[in-house]
Design a protein around this nucleic acid. Structure first.
Lengths: 188, 188
DNA sequence: CTGAAGTTTCAGTAATTTCTGAAAGTTTAG
DNA sequence: CTAAACTTTCAGAAATTACTGAAACTTCAG
């Protein structure tokens, strides 16, 4: 199992990227390697390609499992386990977002809510709570919005994204044709 | 400069979060501290509040500068420099996204494009290039989309996000009222 | 049940990242 | 120009994170 120069460049680069996206270098490399290989690979092949120890491969596989990013496959007549990436690239992006939301954003929202509940003791704390509330609302809006987007079927999502600047136009059309719901903040 | 328990919890939490978002723990803590303080703080106050060395504060400030996240202020009659967060929380979120795009996504797109240009030597490379292309297109779509969103004025952005699931409805309305441009992929 | 073929775990080590504090640099009042 | 008040830099130390490889564990064919 030797990587071609192209694949090597890709795999190493994604190792670095991976480490900025929530998993470590090796995990990123393993995933990248699986993605560009048509055939599933076993742990030995992975270790050999990346020149890492068997134990490290096992840790990486475990991590990718916890992110639900790989499939396991048995090849008849071979006792080794073979691994391949799960789902499409889009699905993997979604899953990474989703997983990070669970691991990072949710606990933050909880903390911010709890700090809100605590009565402020002085002006400084009132100010601080105000800022915490802003951050809370920002995170919540973004979270809900991305959940909506993930719920759209992929074709619609694609339309929406390709719409680009046109989104602005569509929003005005909406104003013309849809009666706004009752909203305490509306200006009329 | 002593932090209240609420502020302390917030600051430490954001230190941990920061380290998952592209800067290190200390930098996250410094930023969080500045956000919840009504008044700008000087380097000594920051160091004292967080129990870190003067040098470390200076490094952190420098890093926050490179992310364009803080303002510098001189107080008349005081030679020290005072720091405060720049812009609103939303602006800071935008800036972090933007900066990470520049530092992480752009180089990846460049690499992927270059690997495309290289002629494939065998079937395995053809397959790999196909996958690299998928990733490239995904990143490009997301990048462009988020650039569009950032270009919208905040009010419209807010409308859009609050629209949530309703976005689906608006898209169908658009189909009814806007003639699609010529598109080689359209099915009619 | 046995042992061969495989996988996982984890203590110790290696690599990387972050932090400290002393020294060098900068700015400004006088 | 000088020196006090402050900031920045950076080499080495400390802390954190990742990796190795041997031992423990699991699975399965015979």
């Amino acid at each position: 199992m030797k990587m071609s120069p192209k694949v090597e460049a890709f795999v190493y680069h994604f190792g670095e990227m991976g480490s900025k996206w929530g998993f470590n270098r090796t995990v990123g490399q393993i995933y990248a390697l699986l993605v560009v290989n048509d055939q599933p690979l076993n742990a030995n092949q992975i270790g050999e390609a990346l020149s890492i120890s068997r134990g490290n491969v096992s840790m990486g596989i475990k991590e990718l499992h916890s992110w639900q990013l790989i499939n396991l496959k048995h090849i008849p007549g071979d006792r080794k386990e073979y691994y391949s990436p799960k789902g499409t690239i889009w699905e993997m992006a979604n899953r990474v977002f989703e997983e990070r939301r669970k691991r990072e954003v949710d606990p933050t929202l909880t903390l911010l809510r709890n700090l809100q509940l605590d009565e402020a003791n002085d002006d400084a704390e009132v100010y601080a709570q105000g800022k915490m509330r802003e951050i809370h609302d920002l995170l919540e809006t973004i979270t809900q919005w991305s959940a909506e987007l993930q719920r759209l079927d992929p074709a619609k999502l694609h339309t929406l994204m390709k719409l680009g600047a046109g989104i602005s136009k569509v929003l005005s059309i909406k104003d013309q044709f849809i009666k706004p719901k009752k909203d305490p903040n509306k200006d009329s």
